[in-house]
Design a binder for these strands. Structure first.
Lengths: 264, 264
DNA sequence: CTAGATTTGTTCGTATGTATC
DNA sequence: TGATACATACGAACAAATCTA
């Protein structure tokens, strides 16, 4: 069962590349042997012997695992393919790449956030410990500071962190992943809209009020209250974002951007 | 700007591997030159000359793009790396791989589906054409046939297709992707639970009724009706799935599975 | 801090399989 | 049926990174 057998599938299409077979096998081995982050796979030479193939083939297989975020390669003694801690970021980055081809806007992101953040909020009711509440409070304080000092762009980004903290507390990895992913999309989208204006102040103030109300509801373990508050929070946030976006697009048309890569 | 420059990063981290630099560059080129699915990148020899490096390096770069679902390799004359149609499947498969490590169950999937399918249903109201309705009706007919003939497992799978059709009609690629992804997860999960019993009949009957009611609401362009019906549909489906799952787990404990790979 | 050992990263040359003409 | 063009795979080398003595 070790070496991949040269089993030619009778009809179905092209032969499966050796490197892909090996990548599959290694992937399964990582899962089967419960390899923890930091563990090492055998080095290239050992894998060559094990699978009875050449170096280039092994390297292609390892490259595949590397792109999938399962391992990183390390040089030097005791080097080799090191198993990685199931990177959320790798999967998210892949998804972003894919979605970047089809352009998306705030409305589409919030159509999801409206639903998912409500579900997320409800799912963490009763699961927040003292440490979690501390992080939430700290985040609120950071937002206050950012608003007071007029750092509007950073304020928007820190506010998103509030929702990442909730993801950490969720026991539903699917829900947590998707919310985190939406948050990262939002950070990307907001990065280039952080130019303007007085709207930011009203936005910041509203966010702070919502977050405070949410923390209160969490403390009271009032699931319905969380749902209601989160829903309103999302609707208002969308509204603000839309206005920011409209302003941004108007500015973009009137003033020629130097780099002029915006059109791409 | 063609060949990658041997720019040694002064302090920061490890040198970026040549193959990764090339992969990045090729990725950008695909985006920049608006390469359509079916277009060919230069073949290996041409890329070797262009980047001034060896075959192995090029192959690793192309492997990276292949794993990311951006290209497929083809042999023979006029072969080479062919640009792929922004594979939804590639991104979904990646995500599945990632999420497979942290085991998930029906409850977690449905916690999302309860929210997202409702949003999806609402978003396609008024966007369905005659062809779409035909597909939905055909799907319902296929479900009926599967139920009548007692093909319970396939019935469950065909039913999920109903929701994929709705995804096709959505104008929100994010929402569509995530719903499609949940559907694929469901297909995976249901595949190994398709053993039993009379519950399937009630389940199938309920699904058919729900789908019919949904189509009616879509025809009437009754957004609220769609929302209500979809919500109930999801709640009932979850309930059925949970019972199927419980039964499955019980069977698993009582009867030793021959292959015995279920524990893995 | 240098020197050597170990392991990945990269190159070249060659052979084989596969699809098109 | 070759003949051609291309990806796939092998094997041996050297370069660069990194740990250890």
């Amino acid at each position: 069962m070790n070496a991949p057998q040269g089993e030619p599938p009778p009809a179905p299409m092209r032969r499966i590349k050796l490197s892909d077979q090996i990548a599959e096998d290694l992937c399964r081995r990582i899962a089967r042997e419960r390899l923890a982050p930091g563990d090492r796979l055998p080095n290239e030479r050992a894998l060559m012997q094990h699978y009875g193939c050449a170096k280039g083939t092994i390297r292609e297989a390892l490259k595949s695992l590397e792109v999938q975020g399962l391992v990183t390669m390390q040089s030097g003694p005791n080097g080799g393919p090191e198993v990685r801690p199931i990177s959320v970021e790798a999967a998210a980055q892949q998804l972003r790449r894919f979605l970047h081809f089809q352009e998306l806007d705030f409305a589409q992101v919030y159509a999801l956030r409206r639903s998912l953040e409500v579900a997320l909020g409800a799912s963490v009711v009763g699961r927040l410990g003292a440490a979690d509440f501390q992080r939430l409070e700290d985040n609120i304080a950071a937002c206050e500071a950012a608003n007071a000092e007029g750092r509007r762009g950073t304020g928007r980004i820190v506010e998103v962190d509030f929702h990442d903290i909730l993801c950490d507390a969720s026991d539903n990895p699917l829900l947590a992943f998707m919310c985190r992913f939406l948050n990262s999309l939002l950070r990307d989208l907001v990065e280039f809209r952080s130019e303007s204006l007085t709207e930011h102040e009203a936005f910041g103030a509203h966010n702070l009020a919502s977050h405070r109300a949410l923390v209160s509801a969490f403390r009271a373990e009032d699931a319905d209250g969380v749902r209601r508050e989160m829903h309103e929070h999302m609707c208002c946030a969308e509204h603000f974002m839309q206005r920011l976006d409209a302003k941004f697009r108007k500015d973009l048309l009137s003033t020629r951007v130097p780099g002029a890569r915006a059109a791409e």
